[in-house]
Design a protein around this nucleic acid. Sequence first.
DNA 1: GCCCTAACCTATTCAACAA
DNA 2: TTGTTGAATAGGTTAGGGC
Length: 194
Amino acid sequence: MVGTNHRRSRTKFTEDQLKILINTFNQKPYPGYATKQKLALEINTEESRIQIWFQNRRARFGFQKTPGPKTLESSQSHGQDQPYMELQSREARRCRTIYSTSQLRTLIEAFMKNPYPGIDCREQLAKEIGVPESRVQIWFQNRRSRFHLQRKREVVSLEPEDQGKISEGLQGAEDTQNGTNFPSNSHSSRARTW
DNA sequence: GCCCTAACCTATTCAACAA
DNA sequence: TTGTTGAATAGGTTAGGGC
């Protein structure tokens, strides 16, 4: 087993921090990277924590991305009417991270050992390849998703009798690009003990 | 023990970039 | 133009911590 699978410890936002976050959310429920960076500086936290906070907030308050017949009940309950309009002029995303060959090699090796690294492992990897921990987390998310997708396609393209064989062998399934081993029941069991 | 919510997950889409 | 892949999203689950 590589590293621990601990989660990051919970961030406890202060009242002042929350006031700033909520105020920004009411104006911009989909802030761009620059806004998130600015917020991170303002309330002295990481940009990735801001991103998660906005994700959770949108989920919790059922925010509608496009104006429709439904009203924005929850956001309105915060005493603001808003906040679709700025969606039309979407703010810039974070710049794409370009990984070098050696950085990718390190990430792929780590993925083969453990596709669900905990915070300690991600931080160690981030330090090793010199990128923020949040980028490592996103890389693993994308990698897992694409692995699942690829495996689905392989199963669909097989004859029914071969599908049985594949599902038996899923435990040792290989990523055709990189030879990545990936257990089959990642989400259903959530047994991230490897 | 319940509730709230940060952390984390998959699935999907958007978009930058190389071939 | 197309394929690859990093970034962002929706929607869901897990788990820490306050009550």
